[in-house]
C-alpha cells in the first residue's frame, strides 16, 4: 500500500492519500492544473516534501532509483535514449513474451525508434515499465494516442496487473475508461487535490 501524508511542492498543495494494493484511482482536472506535477512528485522526479511510504518503507529510507523502480512513473511523452528499440529492453526474452499482449510483434525490438508511430511508442514505453515489475504504476494518459482496439488490449493488461496486486494512479480524460478501470477518482485543479466519486 502506498501511503502519502502532506505531499507538497511548488504548484501543489499538501495532500494526503492512500492507494491500496490492486486499486486503480483515476486523476482528472483541467490541463495545467497539476496532474503531472502530482505524479512526478510521488515518483520523486521533482523535489517535494511530505511523508511517503510503500508497504511501510519510507521514500527517503531508500535510494531514489529503488523507489522509482517500485513506484514507477510513465510520462505522457515517452523518452528514448538509444537508436534501436531493443536497446531499451534489458531482457529481450521477457520483452518478446510480453509484446504480443500489447498487440506488437517481438520483432519490434529490431526497429529503430525513429520509425515508431506515437501509439507504438506509447505501448513500448508502457511495456518497458511493466517489465521492471513496479508495485505502483503512475500513468500519465497511457492510452491517449491509441485506437479503441489497442486501448482495449492495454486496459486488459492493466486489469491483469491490478489482479496481481499492483496499484495504479492514472491520469485520463476518457470518462468511459475511468468507469471501466477506476474505483475512485481524484480531481486536481490549481494544485489542489480533492477526491471525487467516479
Amino acid at each position: 500500500m502506498l501511503v502519502i501524508r502532506g505531499l507538497t511542492r511548488a504548484g501543489l498543495e499538501p495532500f494526503d492519500f492512500d492507494l491500496a494494493d490492486g486499486e486503480c484511482v483515476s486523476v482528472r482536472g483541467p490541463s495545467g492544473g497539476g496532474k503531472t506535477t502530482l505524479l512526478r512528485a510521488i515518483a520523486d522526479l521533482d523535489p517535494s516534501t511530505g511523508d511517503l511510504s510503500l508497504d511501510g518503507a519510507a521514500r527517503e529510507s531508500m535510494p531514489a532509483p529503488q523507489w522509482r523502480r517500485a513506484v514507477c512513473y510513465l510520462a505522457a511523452e515517452s523518452g528514448w535514449w538509444e537508436d534501436g528499440v531493443g536497446a531499451h529492453f534489458p531482457d529481450p526474452d521477457a520483452a518478446c513474451a510480453l509484446l504480443p499482449e500489447f498487440g506488437l510483434a517481438g520483432e519490434a525490438l529490431e526497429w529503430p525508434v525513429s520509425r515508431l508511430s506515437t501509439g507504438e511508442r506509447q505501448r513500448l514505453a508502457l511495456a518497458r515499465l511493466i517489465l521492471i515489475a513496479p508495485r505502483v504504476l503512475l500513468l500519465d494518459e497511457p492510452t491517449s494516442g491509441l485506437d479503441p482496439e489497442t486501448t482495449e488490449l492495454v486496459e486488459k493488461l492493466l486489469r491483469d496487473r491490478l489482479e496481481n496486486g499492483v496499484s495504479i494512479l492514472m491520469v485520463t480524460h476518457d470518462r468511459d475508461q475511468e468507469r471501466r478501470l477506476a474505483t475512485r477518482s481524484l480531481h486536481v485543479e490549481n494544485g489542489r487535490v480533492s477526491e471525487e466519486s467516479p
Binding site: 522509482r68 514507477c72 512513473y73 510513465l74 515517452s78 523518452g79
Partner: peptide
C-alpha cells in the same frame, strides 16, 4: 535537449550517472 530521454531513464530507476551517460 535530451530531457525526455534522461527523465525516462530516471523514471525507470536508472541512477543519474547512467541516465546522464550519453
Amino acid at each position: 535537449a535530451e530531457r525526455s530521454a534522461i527523465e525516462a531513464r530516471l523514471a525507470l530507476g536508472h541512477p543519474r550517472a547512467e541516465a546522464f551517460g550519453n
